[in-house]
Design a protein around this nucleic acid. Structure first.
Lengths: 110, 110
DNA sequence: CTGGATCCGTGATGATACTG
DNA sequence: CAGTATCATCACGGATCCAG
């Protein structure tokens, strides 16, 4: 497996903006969290909800988010497979960030 | 000149989170805006305020931000040169985003 | 002091085909 | 359906030199 691609810099010390950005600053990260939102959503649904993302990036981000406890994953041993993703308590706390981005996008961008 | 490295995707259509992320999703973008904040700040000060950033990236981001009307730049024809940066009205509207990131960093990260 | 310009490595990102 | 594997590409970003 390709190794985790998001690097945590030790030198970020104590700037809270930087600490948040290190975890959530990925190109798709906040968008994925925002799309999951308060739903329990399947992989395929999520993929359709985010047009343009490649499968690789979606899986990679989801694994990252699960690993860092933003997202919880539940797999059902069925045929065909079913996997459901939802936000953890920590993940829910990131929603205000995406909300602020959405508000800005709506109010201030053409 | 190296061509502008931040690419605006046409396919983002109407998701406001994505529109915001396209402009502000750069590695240093929000951090720079946050550091300028409500100040009028010189280039050298700003550089010192953001340890770790290379001059190239700082200039590149500042040019991008000026170009997109988030930041205004005032150069004084003096020797030695003096250049002051500050947020435009639009730039000020991005501060809530950085604030939310800061809040999350303070409250929810180790 | 405030930049501009170029070289260049590396990791991040993406397209596509494949598997259980 | 939910991923994996492989391969190609591109943006990020450091180093360095230069200029007004």
């Amino acid at each position: 497996m390709e190794k985790s691609q998001k690097i945590i810099f030790a030198s970020d010390e104590n700037c809270p903006v930087r600490r948040s950005l290190n975890l959530l600053g990925g190109k798709w990260t906040l968008l994925i969290l925002f799309q999951i939102n308060e739903r329990i959503i399947r992989y395929g649904e999520l993929k359709r909800a985010i047009p343009g993302i490649s499968e690789k990036m979606l899986i990679q981000e989801l694994n990252f988010l699960v690993e860092h406890k933003f997202v919880s994953k539940k797999a059902y041993p069925e045929i065909p497979p079913r996997v459901e993703y939802s936000l953890t308590k920590l993940g829910l706390k990131t929603l205000p960030i995406a909300d602020t981005l959405a508000t800005f996008g709506l109010e201030s961008l053409t």
